[in-house]
Nucleic acid binder design. Structure first.
Lengths: 198, 198
DNA sequence: GCGCTGACAGATTTCAATATCTGTCAGACG
DNA sequence: CGTCTGACAGATATTGAAATCTGTCAGCGC
């Protein structure tokens, strides 16, 4: 079965990710991808209409993989404040890990964030939705007092931009970073909390 | 008196600012500055040891001018929450105005922020100090409950990064921006506020 | 037929020669 | 004397010609 290996979008994405990692976003070409797959570059265009769409698809896959732990956390149960804190810290950790371990892919993501809005916007919206889920759980539990959950989820996302937006990546390794994250999270939690009943 | 106009650092800075505005950061050269002043470029190097130091000095002047209204606001009296909100909104407005009215200088500032840390770091520290001043006034007034004023001032500064850091400038013109600022500020104020005594 | 190839036009990138700029300094000029 | 000039070396930027890449498509081979 499969005596001659078929060319699938999946295989192309795999090869593209390899090529990107090997040559970097700036140097990688569609011809390189085709060479890696041992086909003509015309064949690649049969599956993806443009180089940009190929790059976007790779980035989307990468983002989806990165996002998985956050989806799970948002779906979990337990006290909302703890879950929110955990969710935020996990998001920061994922980003920081990526920027260290997979710098070429991170550069790709950064370039994408700059000139191919749609994919990244959708991804952000998804994350805000996850945040909103945790916040509304907190409201249901009576531990958060929030008027407009969606707007507040956005506000939390905006407030933490410094620790998840790639534009600030170079600051994440600094020694004072953890304590600043600490202060930020506790300020935000205090702002979300419902007044205690005693 | 002053029959032959003397070459002062001040005059050089003036001319440099003009040249930057005219040609943009990428194209402006020390030779251009010298030409504008009708001296040889060697003379400019008598007052500034390098092109970078000249650029930094121009940016510092520009930042100081921009900062002035914020200093005044921090020094004012009145209820801290209102002053904090006003201070933040003023900072956002200044940045937004600059990016519209003076795009070349803003580009200079952006480039500076990327590769000449010191000047910009000092400027940020100053702003955090101003914020801390307002917060500690609020503590004195009994309207803010804050453990570590300095750390909280940093947290507020970090939380609002999206609306004052040049990396996010392109988002400031979007229509949903004001309502997101609204949500962010009210979340932060809620986090700072002392529990009401009734 | 279906999927792939390879040649092609136009756009983009590379590369090396050339020009310009940065930063220095010995000496002119007042 | 102190300030400024202008020539200089090395670094950086510009330029335009050649190479490469992107995206298309007619036609080959299974």
């Amino acid at each position: 079965m499969n005596e001659t290996v078929v060319l699938t979008p999946e295989r192309i994405l795999e090869a593209t990710e390899d090529v990107l990692r090997r040559f970097g976003l700036a140097k990688a070409t569609v011809v390189d991808v085709a060479r890696a797959l041992d086909v003509s570059h015309g064949s690649v265009y049969r599956h993806f209409p443009s180089k940009a769409s190929l790059r976007d698809a790779v980035a989307k896959r990468w983002l989806d993989r990165a996002n998985e732990p956050l989806c799970k956390l948002a779906a979990a149960s337990g006290p909302a404040p703890e879950r929110l804190e955990r969710w935020l810290r996990t998001m920061f950790a994922i980003k920081q890990k990526k920027v260290c371990d997979d710098p070429e892919m991170f550069a790709t993501y950064l370039a994408l964030a700059q000139d191919a809005r749609e994919v990244v916007e959708a991804y952000k919206d998804k994350q805000v939705d996850l945040l909103a889920k945790v916040l509304s759980d907190g409201v249901a539990q009576g531990v958060f007092a929030i008027d407009d959950v969606k707007a507040t989820a956005r506000a939390v996302f905006d407030a933490t931009v410094r620790y998840h937006h790639p534009a600030h990546a170079e600051e994440w390794a600094k020694p004072e970073c953890p304590s600043r994250i600490e202060a930020l999270i506790s300020l935000l939690l205090k702002g979300l909390e419902a007044p205690r009943k005693h």
